[in-house]
Simulated scan of single mutants.
Amino acid sequence: MPEFLHKTFYGNTIFEWGVAAAGILLSFVIAKTVYWLIGHFVKKLAKNTKNRFDDILVDMLEEPVVFVLIITGIWYSLHFLNLSETAQLAISRAYYVLFIVAGAWLLTRLSDATIETYLVPYVRKTEGKLDDQLLPIIRKGIKLSVWSIAVIVALDNAGYDVKAVLASLGIGGLALALAAKDTVANLFGSFTIFVDKPFVVGDRVKVKGYDGFVREVGIRSTRLQTLDGRMVTIPNQFVANESIVNVSSEPSRKITMDIGLTYDTTPEKMERAMEILREIAQNHPDTEENIVTAFTEFKDSALNIRFIYYIKKGASVFGAQNAINMAILRRFNDEGLEFAFPTQTIYTKAG
């Protein structure tokens, strides 16, 4: 062996430095070869399977796997050198930190692959837009949780006082939470709406005294378009805590009418009036078969008939009511049935 290879620099011979450098170079070559094999063979094998998960998984994990091979090769290559205890400790800590980073990278990539394979297709099939808006938040939340744990573990392995760091973060987090409590409440409110699904975009609902159609469900608020066309924005924390009436979920619309006839109406005409009401409701194409007519009470100025019918889901409520009311008016006029109106008779005593 040539004599110059035995010359010492910084506690190691040129030969030892060369072996370490060759090991590091070899680790890069191996990593590059594995990367090439994954791209040209493993991906092709994954594409031949019916399952889409393995395709996404291979694509997500190839970079972290190559990174792990590189840092592992560097770690073993540096073992050929005679290093001081301080240098060895620094390298060990650096290696553990890099390995933890690689682990976190692998976990986040794996979660992305799982979400892309299973959650994204499910979300695309749903009608509402809230889950589309929450999915990126879920992704970022998982990544933030994994990386936060990774940073804490890495700092602990690097020799830092993690308890002091966590205490500082806790105080800052408490202050931030107090300042953003409404935002957090709205965020949890949107999550509650997403999980419970009391309505979807397009439904007509009654909430917080407003009656209207849901036009948008966001992370912070829900927007309703009231029946008079005005847009109302309600924070999600109130929507989640309120009793919600989903008008669109009703199987049919119940219509209740009180029709008053004059007191000179005979019993036969009262029966005929109820028969006409049933005929009108039964012959309309947008009504259900469940029809109720009843002579309910003697009012001050009228004989009252309670008329209940149901309009089918999806039919025009105002259109059906208009058609039925016009038919009642025509049929009652043709049959000589008089509608009552409030009257008052005053008797005077002659002087």
Rank of each mutant, 00 (worst) to 15 (best):
N236K: 05
V120Y: 13
K140N: 15
L277R: 00
L178E: 04
R52S: 15
T183Q: 12
L224V: 09
V66W: 02
V101L: 14
F188Y: 15
N246E: 07
T8M: 13
L134D: 07
A113H: 01
A150T: 07
L119E: 09
M231K: 10
L166E: 05
F341D: 11
D334T: 10
T348A: 10
K206R: 14
L176Q: 01
K44A: 04
L78F: 15
D264A: 08
I255S: 03
I100D: 03
A31N: 05
L303E: 07
P64H: 10
G103Y: 03
D131E: 14
L107T: 10
L61Y: 02
F307Y: 15
I138D: 00
K163V: 11
L176P: 00
T226A: 09
S248E: 11
M1G: 15
K7R: 13
L83S: 07
I137L: 15
A327M: 12
I115T: 06
N82T: 12
T262E: 12
L130K: 06
V66L: 02
T49H: 11
V207H: 02
I346C: 09
L37D: 07
V120W: 08
I219V: 14
S249A: 15
A294W: 05
K349T: 04
G172M: 06
V239K: 08
L110A: 14
A315R: 10
E3Y: 06
N12H: 02
T266F: 06
A167Y: 12
V151Q: 04
V29E: 01
F99E: 01
R230F: 04
A21P: 05
